[in-house]
Design a protein around this nucleic acid. Structure first.
Lengths: 123, 123, 123, 123
DNA sequence: GTGGTCTAGACCACC
DNA sequence: GTGGTCTAGACCACG
């Protein structure tokens, strides 16, 4: 697994772990129905308490990122079904951010300009 | 003061308080050098312990939102000196958000479209 | 820990504590990523209230001297990243001091002489 | 009087006032035996409570910067008698500062260089 | 066990 | 009256 933990990060460990794995699933690095590492093996690899990994997996399952088959392990869910919800969440967050910008004296035009500039750079 | 505390909010109380007051200062509702409510009076008004309000005020002072004069009170700082920094912070946050969007399969064009749509509605 | 508190000192306790620990970190006595005493244990050792130690630690964290991981402990930051800023602060303070000296009728030559004398003594 | 008070300054008002006046005396702007403004007039000029000014004057008298003749007012002391003490204080402070510099990895040579550079600029 | 937040109540210097 | 510091004791999430 291409996961690295940052102990300086203020977020709880289990959230960091689940966040990283969710990214891998969303990016398609881990494909649909592909098996995830077992709780124990990942715990050893990251030298983290298994309880913490278990918590991360439970959170992801509740969030629909994976499904677990008792006795067989955990598997990545179908991303395509997840995307619309995540996209909706993204736009809500964007709306909030832009509303805040108004108070800072930033105009919509400036924001549009900034984003197109980003695009040009190929960021 | 137009502050209401949400006790169900998981953010710490002092952060809620400072956040609300920072907004008021950024929006100009509280003008430069205008006195803020005293630690004790605000504590009574919100029925929060004075120490908690003190913590919120200290944080805001370190962040440049206000200056406090022992024995006299606390006063709003000059927002204009604060804006550039806050705007930079905003754009950094925006950049992060947009980078995340790519992983979700959202194109820059879609984002630009969404924002111009917001603008049209006059939000 | 090699910390001793002077209760006659007019500086607040938390500042004395943070000052002493910052020195230890700057001098390298406490190395990068090395664990600091826990809030509670240091509180007991110095017979100071844990809240006061907590305040000292928080201040140091905001100042970049340490990073704390909730549930695990507090750890010394990388001093090398801190040095340049601290050095800049030093020279600013030096400038102020020397400017004051002029008003006292002390010439730059006298200052240079005094410092080289110090050096000779090996102080 | 050429005194301006900065309410953002963390030092108590009376200390700020005495500091400014001491500077004027040390610089010779206020000559030996020259009368200082009365407590009441200065209080009005700076719109500060007379008690605060009184406290500043008392501190300065205790420190030898002025002498007061009851019924006539306060007068600047002889600076020449004050200078040696103040100079000694300066060098002590300088010593402390330089000792601290060592911990930051700054060499004496660097300090000497910095000071001569200041001199060249005519700062 | 750890750091972090909060309350209640006290004391201080300053104005 | 004001801001600021400190103590004592409690509770929480995290690991």
């Amino acid at each position: 697994m291409l996961i690295n933990i940052d102990f300086r990060d203020k977020r709880p460990l289990y959230e960091q772990v689940s966040g990283k794995i969710e990214d891998l699933i969303l990016k398609g690095v881990i494909g649909k129905d592909e098996p995830l590492p077992s709780v124990r093996s990942l715990a050893i690899e990251l030298s983290i308490n298994p309880n913490t990994i278990q918590k991360a997996y439970s959170a992801m399952e509740k969030d629909g990122f994976l499904y677990s088959v008792s006795g067989r392990g955990s598997f990545a869910a179908n991303v395509e079904e997840l995307r619309p919800r995540k996209q909706k969440e993204f736009f809500l967050e964007l709306d909030g951010l832009i509303r805040r910008a108004q108070d800072l004296g930033i105009t919509i035009s400036q924001i549009l300009e900034h984003i197109t500039a980003m695009q040009a750079v190929g960021k």
